[in-house]
Amino acid sequence: MTSCHIAEEHIQKVAIFGGTHGNELTGVFLVKHWLENGAEIQRTGLEVKPFITNPRAVKKCTRYIDCDLNRIFDLENLGKKMSEDLPYEVRRAQEINHLFGPKDSEDSYDIIFDLHNTTSNMGCTLILEDSRNNFLIQMFHYIKTSLAPLPCYVYLIEHPSLKYATTRSIAKYPVGIEVGPQPQGVLRADILDQMRKMIKHALDFIHHFNEGKEFPPCAIEVYKIIEKVDYPRDENGEIAAIIHPNLQDQDWKPLHPGDPMFLTLDGKTIPLGGDCTVYPVFVNEAAYYEKKEAFAKTTKLTLNAKSIRCCLH
């Protein structure tokens, strides 16, 4: 018999989150649709729960009410004593943790798909938090293969000092899905179709896995975050240069030392320094102006996964 890495157990509980950011409308629209008619997301033997994560922000069509829901799922915020004085999103995070967690427990949901849009030209993107997770690498390989020839990129946010504390991190297997470009507060049919297909293929993978299909060893190309880059700023902290036209919409493309990065209003080009080629992502993302992030630098690498098969009882 072929030796293989056996994944822990079959997958039982899956959640699909929309509206973690209330103005990213593809996930909101799909989740609302699936709450009314969820036939397309159901798979035999699998509990799939669509869920609106930040209903107040969705109602106002804004990213958040008090603070970013997708950055506060750490033990400090989840452990705060519940009171009306807490920011709305912290209270909501505790409610979500109660419903789908608790985080880092045996009772937490197996998989959470968190649906997002970006204003950046990132196409279909899967966000991975753990480079050693054979199950998710296999799932992402399946999704990428199923979507081809449509490109699907994998963004690895594993980093020693950049801690995200994402909404989906309460699950055993957290999956971020990011599709763009799409303006905030807008629905685009092409973007919706791409996100819908990503979810379909992900659920198909889980179904095949649960039925005992063995997935042979595989490898995927990923883009691992190195650092986030702020806009150049003046002495008052105001933005002093904008994304250069040569960099705009060039997510995932190589940016070499000396290539144009920013452009000042008086026409001066600010190039990339250093001696390493990087791959920019979230270029000129609207939501990241407040976070002082013009783009993120990534490096390209390959992740390998062992063969996996479900432990059938």
Rank of each mutant, 00 (worst) to 15 (best):
T2I: 11
T2Y: 14
H5Q: 08
A7I: 10
A7T: 12
A7D: 13
A7C: 14
I11H: 05
A15D: 00
I16V: 07
T20Q: 03
F29E: 13
V31L: 05
K32Q: 13
A39G: 11
G45M: 05
E47N: 07
K49N: 12
F51N: 02
P55D: 13
K60F: 10
C61V: 13
T62L: 09
Y64C: 11
D66G: 07
D68H: 06
F73W: 15
K81G: 09
D85K: 11
D85W: 07
L86R: 13
Y88E: 14
Y88C: 09
Q94A: 06
F100A: 06
G101H: 08
K103V: 14
S105F: 07
S105R: 11
D107G: 13
S108D: 09
Y109G: 01
N117G: 03
T119H: 00
T125S: 14
T125W: 00
N133T: 04
N134W: 10
F135V: 05
L136R: 00
Q138I: 03
P151I: 05
Y153N: 12
Y153F: 15
V154G: 02
V154E: 01
I157Q: 12
E158K: 05
S161T: 15
K163V: 09
T166R: 14
I170V: 14
Y173W: 13
I177V: 15
E178N: 12
G180T: 01
P183D: 02
Q184N: 07
G185V: 01
D190K: 04
L192H: 05
Q194L: 15
M195A: 10
M195T: 13
D204P: 01
I206Q: 00
G212L: 04
E214W: 11
F215T: 01
P216S: 09
C218N: 04
K228H: 07
E235L: 11
I239P: 09
P245T: 04
N246E: 07
D251W: 03
D251I: 01
W252L: 11
W252A: 15
P257E: 04
M261T: 15
D266P: 04
T269E: 06
L272H: 15
L272R: 02
G274C: 04
Y279C: 05
P280W: 02
V281N: 04
Y289K: 15
F295M: 06
F295D: 01
K306N: 07
R309D: 04
C311L: 12
